[in-house]
């Protein structure tokens, strides 16, 4: 039983973080809060990938004669680029939020719905 928990604890935390992020996106009305929620979601995916690449007893994949076991470098590459792309897309989302605020005067979802209904 303890072994099952230790074997899967990382995955479970990744899932829980993912769901906290999803809940923030779905249930909160503030657009900036939604973007922070998306970032939490995104980081949990990163955590899931990196967890899958970990090898027990391994070390960081920088080759040296003193080591023989390394963790899998492939997820590291995928996630490394995804993080920088993530901040670029976050910036795009924030730019949209700024424009929405300038056009409507609010960034709360239900107020935006009301304003859209009036016009």
């Amino acid at each position: 039983m303890l072994q099952v928990i230790l074997d899967h604890y990382n995955y479970w935390v990744a899932v829980v973080l993912m769901m906290i992020g999803l809940y923030t996106v779905v249930a909160r009305g503030n657009l900036i809060k939604k973007i922070v929620g998306l970032n939490i979601f995104q980081t949990s995916v990163f955590l899931l990938y990196i967890t899958m690449g970990k090898v027990t007893g391994g070390t960081a994949p920088i080759l040296d004669e003193r080591f023989t076991v390394y963790s899998n470098p492939l997820p590291h590459v995928l996630i490394l680029t995804a993080i920088v792309v993530g901040v670029a897309t976050t910036a795009l989302g924030l730019a949209l939020v700024v424009r929405i605020r300038e056009s409507y005067g609010t960034i709360e979802e239900d107020e935006l719905d009301l304003l859209d209904g009036e016009t």
Binding site: A60, I62, L80, T81, I83, V84, V87
Partner: peptide, 12 residues
């Protein structure tokens, strides 16, 4: 090329 790092980190 030799340690952690690269274009993405350096750019940021």
């Amino acid at each position: 090329d030799f340690g952690p790092g690269g274009g993405f980190q350096a750019g940021v």
